[in-house]
Each structure stands twice: as structure tokens, then as C-alpha cells.
Design a binder for these strands. Structure first.
Lengths: 135, 135
DNA sequence: CTATATGTTATATTCATAGTATAACAGATA
DNA sequence: TATCTGTTATACTATGAATATAACATATAG
């Protein structure tokens, strides 16, 4: 079981799921072309509704992280993944901005913040334990 | 006019406002002890409801960025600001995580990401133009 | 061919939150 | 005595999240 949901979080469930699938792709835990569980199966495993899973899948399909075939079901993007184009970077800056501002106002210096980001990046790229391949 | 709201954004108005006030404190545009407009005045200026402004003020008061006196009205925290304690850092990591993961999966390397963060940090600390003191 | 599993679509309902609209209150100020 | 302050209360609308069923078309397995 790789996906962990916090039902009490203010972050929507479908968003948590989508985020963790992206992280799975980023870490290599989910390989290109790999099949994902059907919406019904994953929904049952996670104890949530079919439509909530579908919403996450659809969003990731829309962004190009997943492909959905009538035949193969849902698979991780086997071709080229989306790039860090200007549109993404603009969104990234927009989302990072308030976080950087609060870190600054709380007294974190530039190095502390960038090092925290570095550590985070590396921990995703090379996760502590790639134990189970299952979700 | 320093605060700019996007009424079409998925980010709540009161959150946009709170974020920009924090950024104002971070940049020094809002000095410690400085008086902020009353909830009614700012609401009228921004064309939003009094309660929406109040919600932002209350949140920032709760976190320790503002003080609210019956007498002086609303002022920027004149004493020591909140620190980057473990609680904040945990929240920071939690919020940064999905952003770092998507940046990684889109092919940004560690340096690109940290440099983007650096640039952002510096642009907040030393904003392009501190023209108007007004909100 | 038949049964099953797939994604997909359509409704409907419940619930929480955001935002607005008014109104009123208590305390401080001019 | 007015006026401005934050504060509280109530009500309403709109939106989105999440769930619950149901049904459909297609592809696969037996």
C-alpha cells in the first residue's frame, strides 16, 4: 500500500491521490507504461468512491501523466512526460511565492530554505524504501 | 494600491489577502507597529465584504503576524514575529512536496528548482519597486 | 456467444466552505 | 453626542467535494 490518504485534511482526496501518483512517477516507483488499478479496484482499496479516483485519473490524463485506453485500462505515460514549460513555471512560482514569503518573515534565510527544498527533492528522487510495488 | 485580488482564482480571497499582507511584512513594506486600514475601509477599497477582510485579519492575528486592539485598531506585529519552528517546517515540507515532485517529473533538475526558489526569495526580500506605502 | 470488467456518463444527495448582506453591540475617540 | 473601531449573530447564495446508484458501450475471457 503506497498511497496514504488523510480524510481529515483540507486538501481534497482526489488531489492527494493525484499528488501521490505524480510522486510515484517522479520516484520511478511507477514506471512508464505500468498499469494502474481500475477506478473501482483502487476506490475499494482506499475506501473511497469510484468517482473520486476517476477525478484524479482524469486530471492526470488531462495533464499528460497518464493514458487511458478502453483496452489496457489506465497506464503511466509510456511516451515523453510533460515538460517544465513557462506555463508550469509560472504556476510553480505562483504557488511557491506565499510559502517563500512566510519562510522569510519567520526568519529562515535563503540557504535554509533552498537546502530544505534540496533535501525534499532528493528524498523524492531517491525515496527511503521502495519496498512494495503495489499501491 | 498594493493588494491585488483575483476574484476568478481558485484561491480564496481572504487567503490571497492574508498571503499578500505576509509578503508585505516580509518585504518590509509593512513595518512593525504600522497601522492597517480598518476592516470596513479595506473592504470598501478592495470591493469585497467586511467579513472577508476580517477573516484574513483574524487568521494573521491567530498566527501572530498582527495585533488587534480596540484602541489602535489593526497593527503589524510590533514585537517578535513568529519563528520557523518545527511545526511550520513540517507544514512547509508538506506544501512543497507535491510541487517538488511535479517539477522533478517534468524534468527540472535540482539546481533549476533551487535557483527558482532563490530568485523568488530575493524578489520578495528586495521587491522591484516599493513605490506606494498605501494598500 | 455469454458473462465480466473496463472506462464513461448521468442524476441526485449530502456536506462544508466561501462570500455576501444586514444588523446590532460594546468600547474608544473626536 | 456622534462616530469609528472590532466583534458577533443570523441568513442566504453559490460552489465544490464526496458519495450513492444506475446505466451504457466496449473489450476481454471463458
Amino acid at each position: 500500500m503506497f498511497v496514504e490518504l488523510d480524510l481529515q485534511s483540507e486538501v481534497p482526496i482526489y488531489e492527494q491521490l493525484a499528488d501521490q501518483l505524480v510522486e510515484g512517477i517522479a520516484s520511478g516507483m511507477l514506471a512508464p507504461g505500468q498499469a494502474l488499478p481500475s477506478v473501482r479496484t483502487l476506490a475499494a482499496d482506499l475506501g473511497i468512491n469510484l468517482h473520486t479516483v476517476n477525478k484524479a485519473y482524469q486530471a492526470l490524463k488531462q495533464e499528460g501523466f497518464l493514458e487511458i485506453h478502453r483496452k489496457k485500462g489506465v497506464i503511466v505515460q509510456p511516451g515523453p512526460l510533460p515538460t517544465a514549460d513557462e506555463t508550469f513555471k509560472a504556476r510553480l512560482r505562483r504557488d511557491l511565492r506565499p510559502l517563500a514569503a512566510e519562510a522569510l518573515v519567520r526568519g529562515m534565510n535563503e540557504q535554509e530554505l533552498t537546502e530544505l527544498m534540496q533535501t525534499l527533492y532528493r528524498s523524492i528522487q531517491n525515496p527511503p524504501s521502495e519496498g512494495g510495488t503495489s499501491l
